[in-house]
Amino acid sequence: MAENEALLQCRVCGCLSHAPTQLKRFEVMHCPRCGARLKLAQQSTSVEETWALLIAAAILYIPANFLPIMSVYMLGAGQPDTIITGVYHLLEAGQWPLALIVFVASIVVPLLKLFTLSFLLISIQRRSRWRQHDRMRLYRITEYVGRWSMVDVFVIAILTGLVQFGNLARVDANLGSLSFAAVVVLTMFAARTLDEHLIWDVAQQEEELT
């Protein structure tokens, strides 16, 4: 946002509008062009909301990795698999490209998202001016890459939908897949609620004060 010019920029459509000189209690501003809600920097609860979503995601990350996500039964025999054992089975079968895709999408990306978003939040709260361009780029990458974690959930959906041959072969979904999907959804919401302009704004406001 461009607060120093008393102008507000809409996050959705980019339209500029003049900030009102005074806001009544509970009064809400809307973008004159697209109608999305506008917030002043001091009204922003972005950091708190993002922390809440991140903490929820971090808690759910534990059952997502320790509970089984799906079970494959062949001729009556089989056992539930967690994400890690699933990757291990793929490696055993010699399908290392697949193992790599699943490992990156299901383990590396969610962990990386939890860490980078926490790092960005802490740097915003500490009013850091350190490498703002790079932190902005880091945010963009985190925001973009998060949705690809859903690939494991889709694979489970396709396998359970397709492999239903009774005793011969069957794939069932397990509770871990629900926690895993919840982690992906929560981190996606967290990336969305984090107002990336705070990375710039803090430095700007301090420049004006000094």
């Binding site: 459509c13 895709i101 859903m150 690939v151 959930v153 889709f154 694979v155 396998l159 397709l162």
Partner: peptide, 24 residues
Amino acid sequence: MREFKPWGMLEVFMLGVLVAVVKL
């Protein structure tokens, strides 16, 4: 549509289909 954009995941599903095809 702009708000929902990240939630439409056709290309991610496509990757899921390819993974499932190789697995099966």
